[in-house]
Computed example of a mutant assay.
Amino acid sequence: MNEWLKDDERLDYLLAEDLRIIQSPSVFSFSLDAVLLSRFVSVPKRGAIVDLCSGNGVIPLFLSAHTNAKIIGVELQPRLYDMACRSIAYNKLEAQIEMKLGDVKAAPSELGIEKYDVVTCNPPYFLAHELSDKNVSEHYAIARHELHLTLEEAVYSASRLLKQGGKAAFVHRPERLLDIVTAMRANRLEPKRMQFIYPKYGKEANTLLIEGIKDGKPGLKILPPLFVYQENNEYTEEIRVMLYGE
């Protein structure tokens, strides 16, 4: 097993998918948001999917268990890209998943315009000036803050990649709802499905999932709320199934 790992990396389980993923506490570990997005997005049985801001390849890995579609992950940071490539190879998924090292803004010109059925994206949530913790590693800072990619740029690239009628799904923070809806509509992505995630009953939503159709007709469905924890701080049944399977 050690030949697959570097430095402080570890090999974690994706239990519901029966897969393994390489992670690092100092470089990158995926959050629940990636799980939520992978379960929320409408994926075709076949076709082609692009995952933008792929990190260590977690969303392509999640999606591979639920579709036969070809999946391309795009990641800017070489270290995260390398972790993703090794995870894909460890799980013997090279025939289905391909990683591309590069800028999300350049993805349409490099991968092809209007070629894909689905685009997923877990973009940086926070504005660049909100980076106040100087102890945050460069890898986490780039993944979480708009240092190299803004929300508008991510939505623009997603739209250019999609075929007409293709679907784009994003996970973000509820306080950026108007920003993401405005960006989607400005780029021919009509919001069609939305869901708010709450840490517990009685708490404010802290995560937003939204999916749009390129050149779709207006008509937004608000899905039932999803709660992460019960009062005893254990996962709710819905989250347990997402993480651990039936």
Results as ranks from 00 to 15, higher is better:
residue 200 K to T: 14
residue 237 E to M: 09
residue 38 S to I: 07
residue 194 M to L: 14
residue 75 E to M: 02
residue 133 D to C: 07
residue 243 L to I: 00
residue 87 S to M: 07
residue 9 E to R: 08
residue 107 A to Q: 06
residue 241 V to T: 07
residue 136 V to M: 13
residue 210 I to V: 06
residue 33 D to C: 03
residue 183 A to T: 02
residue 65 A to T: 01
residue 127 L to Y: 15
residue 102 G to C: 03
residue 131 L to H: 11
residue 201 Y to A: 11
residue 95 A to W: 12
residue 70 K to L: 12
residue 143 A to C: 06
residue 74 V to M: 05
residue 2 N to C: 08
residue 186 A to K: 14
residue 219 G to Y: 15
residue 75 E to D: 00
residue 81 Y to T: 01
residue 168 A to Y: 04
residue 214 K to H: 04
residue 174 P to E: 06
residue 96 Q to I: 02
residue 75 E to H: 02
residue 81 Y to M: 01
residue 183 A to F: 02
residue 222 I to A: 14
residue 112 G to N: 11
residue 219 G to L: 15
residue 191 P to F: 06
residue 102 G to Y: 04
residue 55 G to A: 07
residue 187 N to H: 15
residue 218 P to V: 00
residue 124 P to D: 00
residue 52 L to S: 05
residue 182 T to V: 12
residue 125 Y to H: 07
residue 58 V to L: 10
residue 246 E to N: 13
residue 67 T to S: 05
residue 211 E to V: 02
residue 147 L to R: 04
residue 179 D to Y: 01
residue 26 S to V: 09
residue 164 Q to T: 12
residue 156 Y to E: 14
residue 43 V to N: 01
residue 22 I to D: 06
residue 68 N to W: 06
residue 69 A to Y: 01
residue 151 L to C: 10
residue 93 L to N: 08
residue 234 E to T: 13
residue 109 S to R: 10
residue 107 A to K: 03
residue 63 L to A: 04
residue 147 L to E: 05
residue 233 N to Q: 12
residue 163 K to E: 03
residue 109 S to G: 07
residue 161 L to W: 05
residue 153 E to N: 05
residue 7 D to K: 15
residue 133 D to G: 04
residue 147 L to N: 00
residue 176 R to T: 12
residue 2 N to V: 11
residue 26 S to M: 09
residue 202 G to Y: 02
residue 218 P to K: 02
residue 60 P to M: 00
residue 138 E to R: 13
residue 210 I to M: 01
residue 11 L to D: 09
residue 19 L to A: 03
residue 240 R to C: 13
residue 72 I to W: 08
residue 4 W to E: 09
residue 48 A to I: 07
residue 39 R to I: 11
residue 51 D to R: 06
residue 146 E to C: 03
residue 54 S to Y: 02
residue 145 H to F: 04
residue 9 E to I: 09
residue 9 E to T: 09
residue 204 E to N: 10
residue 30 F to V: 08
residue 188 R to E: 13
residue 132 S to L: 14
residue 231 E to Q: 14
residue 235 Y to K: 12
residue 187 N to V: 09
residue 206 N to F: 11
residue 26 S to F: 09
residue 152 E to D: 15
residue 150 T to Q: 08
residue 215 D to I: 11
residue 111 L to I: 11
residue 215 D to K: 15
residue 23 Q to A: 07
residue 100 K to I: 12
residue 216 G to V: 03
residue 121 C to T: 03
residue 78 P to D: 10
residue 37 L to M: 03
residue 22 I to H: 08
residue 243 L to H: 01
residue 39 R to D: 14
residue 234 E to K: 15
residue 217 K to Q: 15
residue 131 L to M: 10
residue 226 L to M: 09
residue 44 P to I: 06
residue 210 I to T: 01
residue 180 I to D: 05
residue 166 G to D: 01
residue 183 A to S: 08
residue 200 K to C: 12
residue 101 L to V: 05
residue 118 V to P: 00
residue 244 Y to K: 13
residue 60 P to A: 01
residue 212 G to W: 02
residue 86 R to G: 01
residue 184 M to P: 10
